[in-house]
Structure formats: C-alpha cells, structure tokens
C-alpha cells in the first residue's frame, strides 16, 4: 500500500517536472499571460471599487468585504487552473485519441489524467488574487486568529475542489458529445458571477439553484458570509467553512464517478 502511494507520488513529481520544463519552452506565451491575467484581476477589482465609490455598497457589502470575497474566490480559481485545467481538453483528447495512451499504461487513468499536467500559468491568477484578498483583509481588519486561519484554509481547499469537480464533470460530457469547450465557458461565467458579487444580489430562485443544485455559492459566498458576519437567505447548521470543504470533497468524488462512467463510453476515434 505504502509502496503504491510512493509510486503515485513519484509519477506525480515527474509529471510536475516535465510540465514545468515544457512551459518554459515558450517564454513569449508565458509572458503575455503574466501580463494579461494579473491585469484582468486588478482592473476587475478596480472597477468594483469605482462602482462601490459611486453606489456606497453592493447589497450591504462595502468594498473591503467585496475585495475579500473576490480575492478569496479568485485564489481558488488560480489553484483550480493549476490543478484542473487539463479537464478543459477532454474533448480534444477524445477526438484525437489521447486517452488511448493513458489506457495502455499500467496506472489508474483518472490519476494519470488528473496529475499529468500542472498549469503554472495559474500562478499569474494566484498572485493578483492574493493581493486583492490581502487588500480586503486590511480594509475590514480581518482577525487572523488560529481558528480563522484554519477556516480560510478549509475554504481554499473546498472551493478549489468544487471548481475542479465542475470542470471534471463538465469536461467529461465530452466523452458523449466529443466537445465540451463551450460548456466550460458557461461554467467559468457562472463561477465568476458567483465570486465577484455576493450571491445575495440574485433572486431567491437563483440563490436556491446555486446552493442546492450547482453549489457554486459554496466556493466562497457562504463561507465568506460567515467569516464577515453577513446574513444569507439560506442558513445551515454548523460552520459554513466546514460545509464548503465537505461539499467540495463530495462533488469531487461525484465528478470522478462521472469521469469513470464517461471513460467506459470512450472509444478511441483518433490514431
């Protein structure tokens, strides 16, 4: 058992090394992401600030609170880009027969797929997200007690897992339809709309959907509401940060099942 885990770790590290090397090969490509991604977040935060300066609050949330929400939500976005971006390409791997290669190797296919690629470009999301988050923390003078730090950690892990689960599940649809790129765009748009503004601006029915059907509101709206003491329409017993982690783990395993089901449906069509 331990030997098996060590073997998986070994393979994972090798994949990490390989992807790092291959991404360094195109510096120009990397360079333009290094400029464009941070700009997107910082300008995004800046437009939020301009709006809130004009309108005072977004549904009772001031700029510090919104920056806290947006920053924390974007940190999980950056992490999900690092760990899960390969799921965006399932459609491509299906039509080009890329899975044939995975299936031939004597290692769990899901593991290979999930850990064969680490997208370092995600760091360019992570850094500006952390800056916006830190700004929010200072603005609202967030108390970094032991318990709060622990809660933030739970939210980051849980939020990343929820995002990853959505990507895996949506990406796996490509096993049936051969393409799922545009569905990924929909998921990204929906996530952005769940992270940039508090979900409480939407009518109850939409809040219900984002809570119980597609739990995107758990990525950061619910846990941040708890940390900042904001009211939410739907209430849950216990800590919402723990809920985020729990839901993250649950949906991650559910998405893994969708992936495995899809893989059974896979018939190599490329060469």
């Amino acid at each position: 058992m331990i030997k098996k885990i060590l073997h998986h770790l070994d393979v994972g590290c090798l994949y990490l090394k390989l992807t790092l090397q291959s991404q360094m090969e195109y510096p120009m490509f990397l360079f333009s992401w290094i400029i464009s991604n941070p700009m997107q977040f910082l300008v995004g935060a800046w437009t939020l600030k301009a709006l809130i300066d004009q309108f005072q609050t977004i549904n009772g949330w001031n700029f510090g609170q919104v920056a806290f929400l947006y920053g924390l939500g974007s940190i999980t976005h950056g992490l999900s880009i690092i760990f899960f971006i390969q799921t965006w390409g399932i459609g491509w791997a299906v039509t080009e027969g890329g899975f044939g290669r995975y299936l031939l190797r004597p290692l769990n296919v899901f593991f290979q797929f999930a850990f064969s690629y680490f997208n370092m470009i995600g760091i360019t999301d992570l850094i500006p997200a952390t800056i916006v988050f830190a700004y929010g923390c200072i603005q609202i003078s967030f108390q970094w007690t032991l318990i709060n730090t622990f809660k933030i950690l739970l939210v980051i892990i849980g939020g990343t897992l929820i995002r990853g689960a959505v990507y895996i599940a949506v990406g796996s649809i490509a096993f049936w339809t051969k393409r799922s790129g545009s569905l990924i765009t929909i998921s990204l748009t929906l996530m952005e709309k769940n992270v940039m503004y508090p979900v409480s601006i939407y009518p109850t029915i939409i809040q219900f959907i984002f809570t119980f059907c597609v739990p995107l509101a758990f990525i950061c709206f619910y846990p941040v509401s708890e940390l900042l003491g904001m009211n939410t329409y739907f209430t849950f017993p216990g800590s919402l940060c723990v809920w985020t982690l729990g839901i993250g783990i649950l949906v991650y395993f559910m998405s893994m099942m969708v992936f495995k089901k899809g893989l059974k449906h896979y018939d190599s069509s490329g060469s």
Binding site: R179, G181, S182, T185, I186, T189, L190, K193
Partner: peptide
Amino acid sequence: FEFITSIFVQIV
C-alpha cells in the same frame, strides 16, 4: 451546440 451555449453565456 456551440452556438446555443454561446448564446446561453450571453443570456447569463
């Protein structure tokens, strides 16, 4: 399908 989903994004 791509067309419908891209319209859907704009509706969202």
